[in-house]
Amino acid sequence: MALTYTQFLMLLLIAYMLLGVTVASKGFNYGSPQTTYSDTPNRIIVGGSAYWSFGFNYSVWAFKNGPFYVNDTLVFKYDLPSENNTYPHNVYLVPDMRSFLTCNLSKGVKIANESQGAGEGFEFVLNKWRPYYFACGASDGYHCNVGGMKFFVLPLLRRWHY
C-alpha cells in the first residue's frame, strides 16, 4: 500500500518534530553554564560564514544548526548584483513541501530581492509555529535545484520556566 502525498507529509512532519525535540533537549541542561538554550530569540546567519551562496547545502546546514525556535530571526546575507556577480541571489518563501522539493516557485513569494542581502542582510522572523520553506529563485530556480540553495525549518516553541 503506497503512501499518499498527505500521509507522507504528515509522517515527515512528525519525524521532524520528534527529531527537533530530541535535538533541543540534547543542548538543554538546567543549571549548566554551557546551556545552549536561550529564553530570548536568536539571530542566526543563514549558512554561517558561507552566507547565502550557490553550491552550499542549506538543508544539511539547517539540520546541523537547529533547532530553531519561534521568534528566532534568520539573516540572509549575499552580495549585491554587479559585473562580477552575474547571478545574484534572492529569497523565496514557498508554500509547501512539494514546491520545496521540486523548486517550484510559481506559488512562492519573493521575500527578499537581489539587493536586500547586502550589508547587514535581510532579516526574517520565524513568528509562528509552522513549517517555513526557503529557496533562492535566481535563474528560474536553478540555484534551488542545482545549487542547494533551499532549506526548511519548523521552529519549536520555547519552553516555559516555573
Score class of each variant (00 low, 15 high):
Pro131Arg: 05
Gly27Phe: 04
Ala138Leu: 02
Arg43Phe: 09
Tyr30Gln: 15
Phe122Ile: 00
Leu126Pro: 11
Lys128Asp: 09
Glu114Tyr: 01
Pro81Ser: 03
Ala15His: 12
Asn29Val: 15
Gly148Val: 12
Arg130Ile: 11
Phe151Leu: 09
Gly121Gln: 05
Tyr16Asn: 02
Ser38Lys: 11
Val70Cys: 03
Leu11Phe: 15
Pro155Phe: 10
Val125Pro: 02
Gln7Gly: 13
Leu3Ala: 14
Arg159Lys: 01
Val153Gly: 10
Ala2Arg: 04
Lys110Asn: 12
Trp160Arg: 12
Tyr5Asp: 13
Ala135Pro: 00
Gly20Lys: 11
Phe122Trp: 00
Thr73Gly: 01
Ser53Met: 02
Val46Arg: 02
Ser38Glu: 09
Pro41Asn: 05
Leu156Asn: 09
Phe76Trp: 11
Ala50Ile: 10
Ser99Tyr: 09
Tyr16Gln: 09
Ala15Cys: 12
Gly31Asn: 13
Phe134Glu: 09
Thr86Ala: 11
Ser139Glu: 13
Ser25Thr: 04
Gly48Asp: 06
Val91Asn: 09
Glu120Thr: 10
Phe151Cys: 07
Gly20Met: 07
Trp160Thr: 06
Val75Lys: 00
Val75Asp: 04
Glu120Val: 04
Gly121Ile: 04
Val109Pro: 05
Leu9Ile: 02
Thr102Gln: 04
Phe151His: 04
Phe134Val: 13
Arg159Pro: 00
Gly117Gln: 07
Thr4Val: 12
Val146Ala: 06
Ser99Ala: 15
Val23His: 07
